[in-house]
Simulated scan of single mutants.
Amino acid sequence: MKNFVFSEAVVMAGLRWTIVLIFMLFGLAKFAEYEAAGVAKIAAHYPLFAWMYPLWGESGASNVIGTIELLTGAMIAVGAFSARASFVGGLMGIFTFCVTLSFALGAPAFWEAGYGAPFLGSTGQFLVKDAVLLAACFAIMVDGLRRHTAP
């Protein structure tokens, strides 16, 4: 056990299937009323999503977001067998987490009231994990690119 090292393929598989699980769980949750209401608190006032709420309402907008998350998770899963799908799924994940991290700009309760930076408030605690998820999707995208261009 002293010289045992996990292969890159094993490490990437662990990363991939964990990210797939996250996208599937969060994507499915978007179809539930409680999650649609929670997402609307931030997304309904965010320019990228605000236009959806008058068109489709709280549930419809959340369903669209959930569908995108489920498709992203599916592409990352298929990426286990297809380098191109890994690249595209990873890129979709990067976009997803760049968007969620951008919510931090002006989000209510990002910093804890009365304390300020670096003390995270409830919104900050919810969003800051997305920095790691962004890095994981970047690794999945790079893995897909490497596999696609490998001789």
Results as ranks from 00 to 15, higher is better:
Ser102Arg: 03
Leu127Val: 05
Lys129Ile: 13
Ala77Ser: 11
Phe119Glu: 00
Val142Cys: 01
Thr18Pro: 00
Ala36Ser: 12
Ile68Gly: 08
Ile140Glu: 04
Ala61Arg: 07
Ile140Met: 11
Ile68Ala: 14
Phe31Asp: 05
Ser59Glu: 14
Ala80Pro: 07
Met92Tyr: 11
Ala13Thr: 13
Cys137Tyr: 09
Ala43Gly: 09
Pro108Gly: 08
Ile42Asp: 12
Val5Trp: 09
Val99Arg: 08
Ala150Trp: 03
Ile68Val: 13
Pro108Ile: 08
Ala74Gly: 04
Ala61Lys: 11
Thr67Glu: 03
Val128Tyr: 06
Glu58Ser: 14
Trp56Ala: 14
Phe110Thr: 02
Tyr115Cys: 01
Gly60Met: 09
Ser102Gly: 03
Thr72Ala: 12
Pro118Lys: 07
Ala135Asn: 02
Ile140Lys: 03
Ala104Pro: 03
Trp111Cys: 00
Gly124Met: 02
Gln125Gly: 12
Tyr115Ala: 00
Asp130Val: 01
Thr100Ser: 08
Met1Pro: 15
Leu91Arg: 04
Leu25Gln: 13
Leu48Asp: 07
Val78Thr: 02
Ala80Tyr: 12
Phe110Val: 15
Val128Arg: 02
Gly27Pro: 06
Gly93Leu: 04
Phe126Trp: 11
Asn63Gly: 10
Ala13Ile: 03
Thr96His: 10
Phe97Gln: 01
Met12Val: 10
Ala80Leu: 06
Leu55Gln: 15
Lys30Met: 12
Pro54Trp: 12
Phe6Pro: 06
Val5Glu: 13
Ala136Trp: 12
Tyr34Ile: 06
Trp111Met: 01
Ala61Pro: 08
Pro54Ile: 10
Ile19Gln: 07
Ala83Pro: 15
Ala40Asp: 02
Glu8Asn: 12
Leu145Gln: 02
Pro54Val: 11
Asn63Tyr: 07
His148Gln: 06
Val20His: 07
Gly57Arg: 14
Leu15Trp: 08
Thr149Glu: 12
Gly106Tyr: 07
Met92His: 02
Gly66Ile: 09
Phe26Ala: 08
Ala40Lys: 08
Ala36Ile: 04
Cys98Trp: 00
Gly38Ile: 01
Ile140Asn: 01
Glu112Pro: 00
Ala136Arg: 05
Gly60Gln: 14
Leu91Gly: 14
Ser7Asn: 03
Thr123Tyr: 06
Gly116Ile: 01
Leu127Ala: 09
Ile68Thr: 01
Thr100Leu: 13
Leu48Arg: 07
Leu134Phe: 10
Phe23Arg: 09
Tyr53Trp: 09
Ala40Val: 01
Ala74Trp: 13
Ala50Leu: 03
Ala113Asp: 02
Met75Pro: 04
Val39Phe: 05
Val132Thr: 05
Ile140Arg: 06
Val5Leu: 11
Ser102Glu: 02
Gln125Lys: 15
Gly114His: 12
Gly116Ala: 07
Phe87Leu: 13
Ala74Ser: 13
Phe26Gly: 06
Ala37Cys: 04
Thr18Phe: 13
Arg147Glu: 14
Leu133Asn: 10
Leu134Asn: 10
Pro47Gln: 09
Leu105Met: 02
Leu127Trp: 05
Phe4Cys: 10
Val64Tyr: 13
Leu25Ser: 15
Asp143Gln: 09
Val39Gln: 08
Gly144Tyr: 11
Leu48Asn: 05
